[in-house]
C-alpha cells in the first residue's frame, strides 16, 4: 500500500527543486541597487503610520469556524459515498441514514442563516 506513495515523494522532491531553484537563481543573478526609499512599505508614496497587522473584521474568523464545521461533515460523507452503491442492494437504509445526518446538519445551517452568520455587510 505504502509503495503507491513513492511517486508522490518523487514529485514532492521535483516540486521542491523547481521552487527552490527559481527562488535561489534570482537571488544569485539579480542586480542590487541600494536605496532606502525602495525598502519602505508600498503606500503610493505616503509614509505608513503604523504596522499593517491591526485588528481586522471578525467575519473572517467566523468564516474559518464555519468552514471547519462544514468541512468535517463533508469528510464524513466520503466513506458513505464510496460504499453507497454496495449497501443499496440491502434496501434504502443507507439512504435514510444520510438523510437524517443531513437533516441535523441542515438544522445547524438554518440556525446560522437566521443568526446572520452568512450575512456579509
Amino acid at each position: 500500500m505504502l509503495v503507491e506513495y513513492i511517486p508522490i515523494l518523487v514529485i514532492l522532491a521535483m516540486a521542491l527543486i523547481v521552487a527552490a531553484g527559481i527562488l535561489v537563481l534570482t537571488h544569485i543573478v539579480n542586480p542590487r541597487i541600494r536605496n532606502p526609499i525602495k525598502l519602505t512599505t508600498y503606500e503610493s508614496g505616503i509614509e505608513p503610520q503604523m504596522e499593517a497587522r491591526l485588528r481586522y473584521p471578525i467575519r473572517f474568523y467566523v468564516v474559518a469556524m464555519m468552514f471547519i464545521l462544514f468541512d468535517v461533515e463533508v469528510i464524513f460523507m466520503y466513506p458513505w459515498a464510496v460504499v453507497y452503491k454496495q449497501f443499496l442492494s440491502q434496501g434504502w437504509f443507507i439512504f435514510w441514514e444520510m438523510i437524517i445526518f443531513l437533516a441535523i446538519l441542515f438544522a445547524g445551517y438554518i440556525y446560522l442563516y437566521r443568526r446572520g452568520g452568512f450575512q456579509w455587510e
Partner: peptide, 30 residues
C-alpha cells in the same frame, strides 16, 4: 523577471516572506 532586482522591504517578516512563494508553488505542482 529573473534579472529584476529582488527587493526585500525592511519591515517584512523575512523568514515567512521568503517561505510564502515556495509554499504556494509546491502544492500547485504536486
Amino acid at each position: 523577471f529573473l534579472f529584476k532586482e529582488d527587493v526585500i522591504p525592511y519591515h517584512v517578516d523575512r523568514f515567512l516572506y521568503l517561505l510564502a512563494p515556495a509554499v504556494i508553488l509546491v502544492p500547485s505542482l504536486m
